Computed example of a mutant assay.
Amino acid sequence: GVKQERLSEGLSPRHCALSLVGEPIMYPEINALVDELHRRRISTFLVTNAQFPEKIKALKPITQLYVSVDAATKDSLKAIDRPLFADFWERFVDSLKALGEKQQRTVYRLTLVKGWNAEDLDAYFSLFEIGNPDFVEIKGVTYCGSSATSKLTMENVPWHSDVKEFSEALAEKSDGAYEVACEHAHSCCVLLAKADKFKVDGRWYTWIDYDKFHDLVSSGEPFSATDYMALTPSWAVYGAEEGGFDPRLSRYRKQRNHRP
Rank of each mutant, 00 (worst) to 15 (best):
V67N: 02
V67P: 00
S68P: 04
V69R: 01
V69T: 06
V69G: 00
D70G: 10
D70Q: 08
A72F: 08
T73P: 11
T73R: 03
T73N: 11
T73E: 07
K74D: 06
D75R: 07
D75K: 11
S76I: 14
S76K: 14
L77R: 05
L77M: 14
L77H: 09
K78G: 08
A79Y: 08
I80T: 14
D81I: 12
D81K: 14
R82G: 11
L84H: 11
F85C: 13
F85G: 12
A86Q: 14
A86P: 04
D87S: 10
F88R: 03
E90D: 13
E90Q: 15
E90G: 05
R91E: 03
R91T: 06
R91W: 09
R91P: 03
F92L: 02
F92T: 00
V93Y: 07
D94N: 10
D94E: 12
K97M: 10
G100T: 08
G100C: 08
G100N: 14
E101S: 11
E101C: 12
K102F: 04
Q103K: 15
R105Q: 08
T106G: 03
V107K: 00
Y108W: 14
Y108T: 05
Y108P: 01
R109P: 02
L110D: 00
L110H: 02
L110E: 02
T111L: 09
L112C: 13
V113M: 12
V113I: 15
K114P: 01
K114A: 10
G115K: 12
G115R: 11
W116P: 05
N117W: 01
E119A: 09
L121K: 06
D122K: 11
D122V: 10
D122A: 15
D122P: 05
A123N: 09
Y124M: 05
F125H: 04
S126V: 03
S126Y: 07
S126H: 08
L127F: 00
F128P: 00
I130T: 07
I130N: 02
G131I: 01
N132W: 05
N132A: 10
N132H: 12
P133Q: 06
D134C: 05
F135D: 00
V136R: 01
V136F: 07
V136S: 01
V136C: 06
E137R: 03
E137S: 08
I138A: 01
I138Y: 00
K139Y: 11
V141D: 06
V141G: 04
T142K: 07
C144Q: 09
S146G: 09
S146C: 07
S147D: 13
S147H: 13
S147E: 08
S147M: 14
A148C: 07
A148H: 11
A148E: 15
A148F: 12
A148T: 08
A148Y: 15
T149Q: 15
T149C: 04
S150N: 15
S150D: 13
S150A: 15
K151A: 10
L152E: 10
